[in-house]
Design a protein around this nucleic acid. Structure first.
Length: 474
RNA sequence: GCCCCCAUCGUCUAGUGGCCUAGGACACCACCCUUUCAAGGUGGCGGCACGGGUUCGAAUCCCGUUGGGGGUGCCA
């Protein structure tokens, strides 16, 4: 945690501890990180919750891990934190008292029922400023409210330009609750001031609250930070992504085998695009060229299909050795369907180049090669019925088995043998290999067939063929 | 209700008054390649929400309409 020069920008990233890391948050984190690093400034991580009890250590760790996965490392000199909003409660209260002392805030003893009552009578909504000049002091059950000044508040936004708010449309909002605890809005501003935050880059949903925060900065005698409100991420219904209906956890994509490079590259194309006709570009290029001013103003749909397409592209871009290393991490993990001692690294190495062009997500390598390591690969019922309903299936399979008895056991020879049987029956190779494939792998689709057959060995291959034949005759 | 934001192919975007007969990517379709499936190659489908201005000229500027989203708590 190094100290940067005093005028270096400080970008704060403030996720709330919710037990998972939201993809929208990930994108915002990336924006903050790119800018902070490029400007020689600091990325400040602050875990955002005024309620201490919600700050679960494992959640904080989850956020830090997810950030690290995306290349935002907590041991980087540009990284500061994590800090906890809840740790500053005393400062938040002190600021509130200062605001009261300076006349920027006042106490109010109205309950929410009374406020509603008054609103109904006057035909207006919200709090009407009833206690503004009643000169109330602090007491149990009284809230401290901010005295919203007359005039307008202009929010200068790096993404959207100037946004003008008429202060008369903003009611005197609460700073301290009846029990004396500070509300989020106040806590936020005080923390930002305490941490010398210069740039606040966050999701658009916070824009309507920004004038309130800016008034607080002013009232506290500080110069507000540079605001930047980036569009939210939405689902196919164009609603803000939410944990309940949508798949939003970064961790989940990571578990499925989405590559960090693909994820961050894809995330960056939401609301922004690198120059030129290619969207898949090296991270360095993105870091060099990203500008907040170029960020789109409209919400973007988080398209998992496109993410997967990016991921497939990144998988194919990987050097073979790296692909093997990443795949083996999955193939040797405990949740794989075969016993650990049946895994054969040499076999996978042979298959790896064939698999690499066929997966979009790393987790897909498992169903691609499982039949090599399973003693008895399950046979897909539908594939079996469909393939073996053909008259020729069993007869050709018998011929193939006969041929396999004596040929030299090499992929190329195996292919020739199967082709020869096909010629005799007047069936093309494509159709010929279908029953063979089902017999050996249990499915109708998969990687090229003859290499794995060689790997499996003559005995095991014949065993599986005969087993399929007898199954067909039942 | 009030306030704020937004509006280019189905989706993500390029476009900042003439380079636009609107470019790319994902998805989709067709063909080629091919050992199934992919990958790769070639081609195709498909868009400036609407109405008014401003201008010699508008996807680009202005106004309005419509549509979407967000905010409006003694939640964060």
């Amino acid at each position: 945690m190094s100290r940067m020069s005093t005028d270096a920008p400080r970008y704060r990233f403030a996720p709330s501890p919710t037990g998972y890391f939201h993809v929208g948050g990930a994108r915002t984190a990336l924006y903050n990180w790119i800018l902070a690093v490029r400007q020689g400034g600091t990325f400040v991580l602050r875990i955002e919750d005024t309620d201490e009890s919600r700050n679960q250590p494992q959640w904080t760790q989850g956020i830090i891990d997810a950030l690290a996965w995306l290349g935002i490392n907590s041991d980087d000199p540009h990284f500061e934190g994590p800090f906890f909003q809840s740790a500053n409660a005393a400062e938040h209260v002190r600021a509130a008292e200062q605001l009261f002392a300076s006349g920027h805030a006042y106490y109010c003893d109205l309950t929410s029922e009374q406020i509603q009552e008054r609103a109904k009578e006057s035909g207006r909504t919200g709090y009407d400023g009833y206690s503004r000049d009643r000169g109330l002091g602090p007491d149990e059950g009284r809230v401290l409210r901010f005295r919203v000044p007359e005039g307008h508040t202009i929010v200068r936004d790096l993404v959207r330009g100037d946004v003008d708010f008429d202060n008369s449309t903003i009611e005197d909002f609460v700073l301290l609750r009846g029990n004396g605890t500070p509300v989020f809005l106040l806590a936020n501003v005080v923390d930002d001031i305490l941490m010398n935050i210069t740039h606040v880059v966050r999701a658009e949903e916070h824009l309507p609250n920004t004038p309130k925060q800016q008034m607080l900065w002013d009232a506290l005698g500080k110069k507000p930070p540079q605001w930047a409100h980036v569009p939210v991420l939405v689902n196919e219904q164009r609603k803000k992504l939410s944990k309940r209906r949508d798949k939003v956890a970064v961790e989940q994509y990571r578990e499925e085998g989405i590559l960090a490079d693909a994820m961050r590259n894809y995330l960056m194309t939401l609301g922004w695009a690198p120059a030129g006709d290619t969207e898949i570009v090296p991270w360095e290029t993105i870091v060099e060229s990203f500008r907040l001013e170029d960020v789109n103003h409209s919400p973007a749909f988080f398209d998992i299909k496109k993410l997967q397409a990016f991921n497939g592209e990144y998988i194919r871009l990987m050097p073979l050795e790296e692909f093997i290393a990443q795949a083996e991490a999955i193939l040797t993990s405990p949740n794989v369907p075969w016993p650990a001692d049946r895994y054969r690294s040499d076999m996978f190495r042979t298959m790896a180049p064939l698999v690499q062009t066929r997966v979009a997500v790393m987790a897909e390598v498992v169903p691609m090669v499982d039949f090599l390591f399973l003693a008895e690969p399950p046979i897909d019922e539908q594939s079996f019925t469909k393939t073996f309903s053909a008259e020729s299936a069993v007869t050709t399979l018998n011929d193939i088995a006969a041929a396999f008895e004596s040929i030299e056991w090499a992929a190329e020879r195996i292919k020739v043998a199967v082709e020869a049987v096909g010629e005799r029956h007047g069936i093309k190779l494509g159709k010929m290999q279908a029953p063979l494939r089902v017999a050996v792998t249990g499915r109708t689709v998969g990687p090229p067939l003859f290499e794995p057959i060689e790997l499996l060995g003559r005995d095991e291959t014949l065993r599986r063929i005969r087993s399929a034949i007898s199954r067909a005759s039942k």
